[in-house]
Simulated assay, not measured.
Amino acid sequence: MNTITTIETRYFAFERDFVDSLRCIPMIVRYKLDTCRVKLQLSDWAKFNFDEKDLLAEMPCHAPDEVEMYADYVNELVWKYTSTVPSLLQNLDPAWVRMHVPAEVHERTHEWNCPVISATQWTQLNELERFALVKLSRSGHEGRNFPRALAEFGLATAC
């Protein structure tokens, strides 16, 4: 990504069942990990203490020097607990920065019988919201949060 948007720390309502304990990686941290291209395993995240997890959510990761410091800190934490370093994302596809609704988001709306998201609705979402919908659309993510996210972002009342 050439241009990095400043994203404020935000936890989504659909994450509320784990935000108090930070047992799962919240979207704000996932966004920052993708920004610095670090692939953090949930098993490594689980080893971090609450303050370390909270700091990863709060640390800035926008300007090039911040992105580098963020990646260094994640690497230090993983090394501290596992004596390994996380791998780097090789083929990052930032579908959330596109101005059209990605195919995987359309597919997921159909799977859940949710209303189709228009291009206008997509562009009115902020970057973190678009990121969340893309991530929730991909395999390996808890599907029940996708319709919750749509409702939270004002895109569907019930799916």
Rank of each mutant, 00 (worst) to 15 (best):
L150A: 06
H106A: 12
R138T: 13
T5G: 00
F18E: 02
A46M: 12
S43F: 12
E129Q: 04
W79D: 08
A149S: 04
E152L: 06
R16E: 10
W96A: 05
T6I: 09
P86Q: 07
D65Q: 14
V38A: 10
S118Y: 07
V74E: 02
V85N: 07
A103C: 08
H100Q: 09
L22G: 02
Q41Y: 14
L22C: 07
F153D: 02
S118L: 12
T120C: 05
V78P: 02
C159D: 00
E8W: 09
G154I: 07
A132N: 00
A103K: 13
F50V: 09
D51F: 13
I117F: 08
S118D: 06
R108S: 02
A57V: 03
K80D: 06
M1T: 09
S137C: 06
H106K: 11
H110D: 09
H62E: 14
L155C: 04
L55D: 03
D17P: 05
L42W: 09
Y73N: 07
P94L: 01
K47E: 13
V134K: 00
E76N: 14
R37G: 08
V97E: 06
L42T: 06
R148I: 02
E15M: 11
V19W: 06
E152R: 01
A149I: 01
N113D: 10
D34P: 00
F146Y: 02
F153W: 05
N113Y: 10
G140Q: 03
L22I: 06
R144V: 11
P94K: 05
R30V: 02
L125I: 04
V116L: 05
F14C: 01
A63D: 09
L88Y: 12
F14E: 03
W122T: 03
D17C: 10
F14P: 00
D72C: 11
C24H: 07
R138C: 12
E111G: 11
W122Q: 01
W122C: 06
P64I: 01
A158L: 11
Q124H: 15
F146Q: 01
S21C: 09
I25T: 03
A103I: 11
Q90C: 11
I117E: 00
D54W: 13
V74N: 02
H141M: 12
R98V: 06
E76S: 14
D44G: 09
E142G: 11
D44H: 15
C24K: 15
V97K: 08
T5Y: 03
H141Q: 12
Q124N: 14
K39L: 14
K32L: 07
I4T: 15
R138K: 12
I25N: 02
L155I: 01
N75Y: 11
L136N: 00
L55V: 05
T5K: 04
Q121Y: 08
S21A: 15
R16A: 14
S21V: 14
P64H: 09
P26G: 03
A151G: 04
F14I: 04
A103N: 13
T82R: 15
Y81H: 09
P60A: 06
E127W: 01
I28G: 03
E129R: 02
E8L: 09
A119D: 12
T9K: 14
C36D: 03
G154E: 06
T3P: 10
P60N: 10
R16Y: 11
R30L: 12
H141G: 07
D34Q: 11
L77I: 01
A71Y: 08
D20I: 11
